[in-house]
């Protein structure tokens, strides 16, 4: 490590240049940093309160015992459906697969047109233009993972080209990965720089910053990564790529929500949270919504500020919703398998 770099050096220019989406400019960020005792980024990150693992996990576990019934359950299930980023991120994703995914995203339950649509589909950049065409005239957004997803191990120029290609192809949202190695090596400035540069490359597209919490080892690192992403201009912070275990967990999500709440409290800018990876059941999804409900102001209970990155989750949400409304459980083949 070469020692802390002044924040101005790493990213001020990037912020200044970025003007396309006024609401996304973290105007409070640099003001926020200045009065701190140590105006360098590492100093700021070290000044964040510590996170006690046991206490955090105990709080998440306590909230997981909430029992959501009746009308509240239907509302939660339908809200969760609307928040799904229906995802396929495999090497064998063909146009056919993506077309099926888009159809499912638009109308998750063909028998009940009142259900859905979901928030977005989440795919690799080369499939964006296809998805855009499939989703034309639909409110479903197209999110592309970029920046050498999932490992992020490419030069910044390649990552930026990846982003630009996705945006060029019409991506509404870009899910980038942070440089976890840089974060673990203490090169926070590098991580921030990349987020800012990607944000710039996104233009009008929304930026979701994937922290890949499963590789960050400690909650303190996750907290720091959350702040770096928000300071860099993230519209969402996202837990995981789905390619690393553990992916999203309740305590991780709770911690990121708390970071978002603090950041909102200090700057007034709301940042969304996306939980991704391993969320397969409606019960899991409702637990995340309980965290949102009891941690963040009401505006977060919407797809504009909370998302689930998932694939099989959607069907369980549909099954449970059907049960809640009609009193009987659906069968495994009642819904398509995308």
């Amino acid at each position: 490590m070469t020692g802390p770099k002044p924040l101005g050096e790493v990213g001020e220019a990037a912020i200044a240049k970025h003007t396309s989406r006024a609401s996304a400019i973290p105007s409070g960020a640099d003001q926020l940093l200045r009065p701190r005792a140590d105006s360098s980024l590492p100093g700021f990150l070290r000044s964040l309160p510590g996170v006690d693992q046991v206490g955090l996990e105990a709080r998440a576990a306590a909230l997981a015992t909430r029992s959501i019934k009746a009308g509240a359950k239907i509302l939660a299930l339908e809200t969760a459906i609307s928040m799904v980023d229906l995802t396929t991120l495999e090497g064998d994703d063909t146009p056919g697969k993506v077309r099926a995914l888009c159809a499912k995203a638009k109308a998750p339950d063909p028998a009940d047109p009142g259900v859905g649509p979901v928030a977005a589909v989440c795919i690799y950049p080369d499939l964006v233009s296809l998805a855009k065409a499939e989703l034309a005239n639909s409110p479903v957004l197209v999110a592309a993972v970029a920046t050498a997803f999932p490992s992020g191990r490419s030069p910044l120029s390649v990552k930026l080209a990846d982003v630009e290609a996705a945006v060029e192809a019409g991506a509404d949202e870009v899910d980038m990965v942070i440089d976890r190695a840089a974060l673990l090596a203490g090169d926070y400035a590098r991580v921030l720089l990349e987020v800012r540069e990607v944000k710039k490359a996104c233009g009008g597209a929304h930026l979701k910053v994937i922290l890949e919490t499963g590789e960050l080892a400690t909650y303190d690192n996750i907290n720091r990564a959350s702040w770096i992403a928000m300071l860099g201009g993230a519209d969402f912070i996202k837990t995981s790529t789905g390619k690393v275990a553990p992916a999203s967990t309740l305590p991780v999500a709770l911690l990121m929500m708390e970071a978002v709440r603090e950041y909102h409290g200090e700057t007034g800018r709301p940042v969304g949270v996306k939980v991704a990876g391993g969320i397969r059941t409606a019960k899991d999804a409702i637990r995340y919504l309980v965290l949102v409900n009891e941690t963040l102001p009401g505006q977060w209970m919407s797809k504009s500020l909370f998302r689930f990155g998932a694939s099989s989750l959607l069907n369980d949400l549909l099954v449970q919703r059907y049960k809640q409304i009609h009193g009987v459980y659906g069968g495994p083949d009642d819904y398509s398998l995308e």
Binding site: D52, Q53, V54, G55, A217, T218, Y219
Partner: peptide, 8 residues
């Protein structure tokens, strides 16, 4: 008696 969490 003193209690302290064990965590990282």
């Amino acid at each position: 008696t003193v209690w302290h969490p064990i965590g990282i």
